[in-house]
Design a protein around this nucleic acid. Structure first.
Length: 268
DNA sequence: CACGAGACCTGTTCGC
DNA sequence: TGCGAACAGGTCTCGT
C-alpha cells in the first residue's frame, strides 16, 4: 500500500502515538531489511534513543530519534503497526522496536522488498528525489518545463522518483485519466493546456487519496477507502466513469497501466 | 538519454 | 480439484 497518500496517512496516525517514547530495544527478523547496517550494530545503536518526530519525504518514513534518523520504505508490501508490547509476532514481521509505554512498532513485509536505513542525516538518501507533488516547488510552470526537457513516455516519467517523488502506479493512472492524457504520450508532446490539467490532476488525486485515508487493496487492509473510488486503476473492462467506454489495460514500462481509450486517445 | 529485461520476494488469483 | 502462469501499491542494475 505504499504511495504518497498511504504513507502520509500512516505518518499522521502514528506520529502522535510515537513521539516522546523511548526505544528500549530492537528485534531484527530479516537481516536484509537493514539496508546499511548489521542487526547487531543496529540494535546497539538504536537502543535508548527517544523518538523526536515522524515525517514523510516522498514514500519514505523519516523517524527522527535523538542524534539519528531511522528511514523506512515500505516498497510493495510493507506495513508499519503500533501494537501492544506483548503481542505475538506476525508471520511477516521483519523488524520491531520495543518502546516505552508497553508498545512496539512493527515493520511487517510479506515480500521482503522493504528497507530501513539508520543514518545520522537522511539528506544523502533523499538527495536524488524530485519535488514533492504537494509541495511549493511543484508548480504548473515547473511541470511544463520539466516535461518539455525530456522525451519519455509520460507514465514511466511520472513514476520516476527522481522526476517527481511520491507517485506510484495507482495515482499515476488516476491522474492521467483525470487530465485526459494517454499514458504513452511523449512528455515533450504534452500541450500547455494538458500540462496545467496534469498538474491539477496530480494534486487532486493525491489529496483525494489522503482524504480517504489511502487505498487498501489485496490482503493488506488498513482502513483506507480510496480503492472504492478508482476511476481506471484495476478496472479493465469496466465502464469509464466519465464516458462509459470500457477501460483498457496495457503494459507500459513493465507496469500494468489502466486508461480510457475515449477520454485518453492515443497520440497521433 | 531512453527503454526493456531481469532481480529481489511471497502470496493471491486466473485459466485450463 | 489441481497446478502452473500471471500478477501485485516499488526500485535497482545492467545491456542495448
Amino acid at each position: 500500500m505504499p504511495e504518497l497518500p498511504e504513507v502520509e496517512t500512516l505518518v499522521r496516525s502514528l506520529r502522535p502515538a510515537l513521539v516522546g517514547r523511548t526505544i528500549l530495544s530492537a528485534r531484527v527478523r530479516w537481516a536484509r531489511t537493514l539496508a546499511n547496517d548489521t542487526p547487531a550494530h543496529f540494535k546497539k545503536q538504536i537502543g535508548g534513543r527517544q523518538v523526536l518526530g515522524l515525517a514523510r519525504r516522498a514514500k519514505y518514513f523519516d523517524l527522527q530519534v535523538t542524534g539519528a534518523h531511522l528511514v523506512i520504505h515500505l516498497r510493495m508490501s510493507g506495513d508499519l503497526r503500533l501494537v501492544p508490547a506483548d503481542q505475538v509476532p506476525a508471520v511477516h514481521d521483519r523488524l520491531s522496536l520495543d518502546l516505552s509505554g508497553d508498545m512496539k512498532l512493527v515493520f511487517n513485509d510479506a515480500r521482503k522488498f522493504g528497507r530501513a536505513w539508520f543514518l545520522p542525516d537522511p539528506a544523502s538518501l533523499f538527495a536524488r528525489l524530485g519535488p514533492e507533488p504537494l509541495g511549493e516547488d511543484f508548480t504548473p510552470a515547473w511541470l511544463c518545463a520539466a516535461l518539455g526537457a525530456r522525451r519519455r513516455q509520460i507514465k514511466p516519467l511520472l513514476l520516476d522518483q527522481t522526476f517527481i517523488a511520491g507517485l506510484g502506479n495507482i495515482y499515476t493512472d488516476e491522474a492521467l485519466h483525470m487530465a485526459k492524457i494517454h499514458p504513452q504520450t511523449c512528455s515533450q508532446a504534452v500541450s500547455a493546456a494538458q500540462c496545467a490539467a496534469l498538474w491539477q490532476a496530480i494534486r487532486a488525486v493525491l489529496q483525494e487519496g489522503i482524504r480517504r485515508n489511502g487505498a487498501s487493496i489485496d490482503w493488506v487492509y488498513r482502513g483506507g477507502e480510496f480503492q472504492n473510488y478508482f476511476r481506471v486503476y484495476g478496472r479493465a473492462g469496466q465502464a469509464c466513469p466519465a464516458c462509459g467506454a470500457a477501460v483498457e489495460r496495457i503494459v507500459t514500462g513493465q507496469r500494468g497501466t489502466h486508461f480510457c481509450p475515449v477520454c485518453q486517445p492515443a497520440p497521433a
